[in-house]
Design a binder for these strands. Structure first.
Lengths: 175, 175
DNA sequence: CTATCCAATTGCATTATGCAACTGGTTGTG
DNA sequence: CACAACCAGTTGCATAATGCAATTGGATAG
């Protein structure tokens, strides 16, 4: 897993997020506010396996993108949090999402978040990062508007709209 | 290799560039203007193996990020070109480079390009993308300034500066 | 006391990556 | 024309990563 093949920033970043799962896990924590192992496992759109998730989380903690702490409300629960480094991946997420939306067969309802992030631009990203700092690093809130909430609402509204486009009777026909 | 685990733009992008080599190969073509198999193989900072490079190029051509054509000057030579989709990865490269420069142990001389791209911002990226369209897609030149040249010069100057910091006698001691 | 929840781990199969050597052919040089 | 260098890969083999299904050793809720 560990490399350090060269000191090039692009290479070094790919050594960290250059696999099929790391960014997807961080995406779910970032935009879906998943903080527990189970949440990440069972709500994973892509269906990550538990051993892969386990290895991925361990690695992300090791390299300082996540931190792992006990949940005071439950002795067995573990809370994963984004580090400042991971929070600063927001522009990367936005840029990658914008690219994927244009150049890959992205679903419309799943693209709505990418679209809002792209349209919002760097100012929105900064606002969102501040919100993540409140949620994950215990920072004190700066603004009252919730970008996370806006993104989530738009995402769910799009999901609803898609549902009505394709009635349940039709959807049932799809195995 | 082929997945399509979900229609999420971020996931779909990671299914394309989410491996250790794809972005590094595209980086060398983009910033180092490497167009032939040998150039990519022998000038690779990270030391890619020929079978990996071969598989990677094949895959990138398959998914439409590169095109492959015969070199008219040499019957055995093959020219690889960036497609419009790949050229539009410039903002992704810039954002990823900026992140790596801050959050990973990047070498200073290898960071100079990432730094210039970051400081130049979206306007510089657009200019650079236009230059890539000239080089890779046969577009007609729009501007006389060469961002590629600027980036290359800065990169080589930084490499020279590093050389003088560490004289050859000292460098030789390092096995 | 028991069913459910929790964060993983285990065993096993399939893929991907990595290394070194090699292939079949083309081109430039003497 | 002979020969070395160059060209884009391929082959065989070892190691590492990923994926699937079942299971573990607890903790908690009813």
């Amino acid at each position: 897993m560990l490399d350090n093949r060269s000191g090039c920033p692009i290479n070094l970043t790919m050594e960290v997020i250059g696999d099929r799962w790391s960014l997807v896990v961080i995406r779910d924590m970032m935009f879906g506010n998943r903080r527990h192992f189970r949440e990440l496992l069972e709500n994973s759109m892509e269906g990550i396996a538990s051993n892969i998730l386990s290895a991925r989380l361990k690695h992300l903690v090791d390299i300082g993108l996540l931190s792992r702490s006990d949940d005071p409300s439950h002795k067995q629960k573990v809370i994963y949090s984004l580090s400042e480094s991971a929070i600063q991946l927001v522009p990367v997420m936005a840029t990658i999402g914008a690219w994927g939306r244009r150049h890959r067969p992205a679903t419309r309802e799943l693209s709505i978040r990418a679209q809002l992030l792209e349209e919002g631009g760097p100012e929105l990203w900064e606002e969102f990062m501040d919100e993540l700092r409140v949620l994950h690093l215990g920072a004190s809130p700066k603004s009252e508007f919730s970008v996370l909430q806006k993104l989530t609402e738009a995402f769910q509204a799009a999901a609803e709209a898609t549902k009505s486009e394709l009635p349940s009777s039709d959807r049932d026909k799809i195995k």
